[in-house]
Amino acid sequence: TGIVNVSSSLNVRSSASTSSKVIGSLSGNTKVTIVGEEGAFYKIEYKGSHGYVAKEYI
């Protein structure tokens, strides 16, 4: 489990790349469930599926 550490919002992406499609966003202080790691990204549970967020903001 981690907490989103941004002042505005954090993009949730379809894969572990900054060039991948943005599938949603999370507000600061949102609790997320981390299910894996891939490079500079965490794989998280997101809306019944999975998404990826940059580690530096969790």
Rank of each mutant, 00 (worst) to 15 (best):
E56C: 12
I3T: 11
L26I: 11
S49M: 14
S17C: 08
G51N: 01
Y46P: 00
K43L: 10
A40S: 11
S19Q: 13
V12D: 01
Y46V: 03
T1F: 11
K55F: 03
S14C: 10
V22W: 06
N11F: 13
I44Q: 00
T18Q: 12
S27D: 12
T1H: 13
S8P: 11
E37T: 09
K55H: 03
V6K: 13
I34S: 01
S9E: 11
S25F: 14
L10A: 13
S8G: 15
I3L: 09
K47P: 02
R13K: 07
S15K: 10
G28E: 09
H50A: 07
G51Q: 02
E38P: 01
G51E: 01
S15E: 14
S9T: 12
I23K: 04
N29T: 08
S25H: 14
K43M: 10
N11C: 14
A54T: 07
E38Q: 09
A54D: 09
T33C: 11
A40G: 11
G39Q: 05
I44P: 00
S49N: 09
T30W: 07
R13C: 08
A16G: 06
S25D: 06
V35L: 15
G2H: 08
F41T: 02
I34E: 00
G48H: 07
G28D: 08
T18D: 14
E56Y: 10
Y57G: 12
F41K: 01
A54L: 15
F41I: 01
S25K: 14
K43Q: 08
E56R: 13
T33N: 11
Y52S: 00
G28K: 13
V22E: 04
K43W: 05
I58H: 02
S15H: 14
G39Y: 05
G39L: 06
K55M: 07
N29E: 08
V4W: 03
I23S: 02
S8W: 14
K55G: 02
K21A: 15
A16I: 05
I3D: 04
S27G: 11
Y52G: 00
V4Y: 03
I23N: 01
Y57N: 08
G24E: 02
T33P: 03
V22R: 05
T18K: 12
K21N: 12
S20V: 03
L10F: 05
V35F: 07
K47Q: 13
V32W: 03
E37L: 07
K21P: 15
V12Q: 00
T30Q: 12
S14K: 13
G36T: 05
Y52Q: 00
I44N: 00
G48Q: 08
E38W: 08
E45A: 10
G39M: 05
G36C: 07
K43D: 02
T33W: 11
L26E: 01
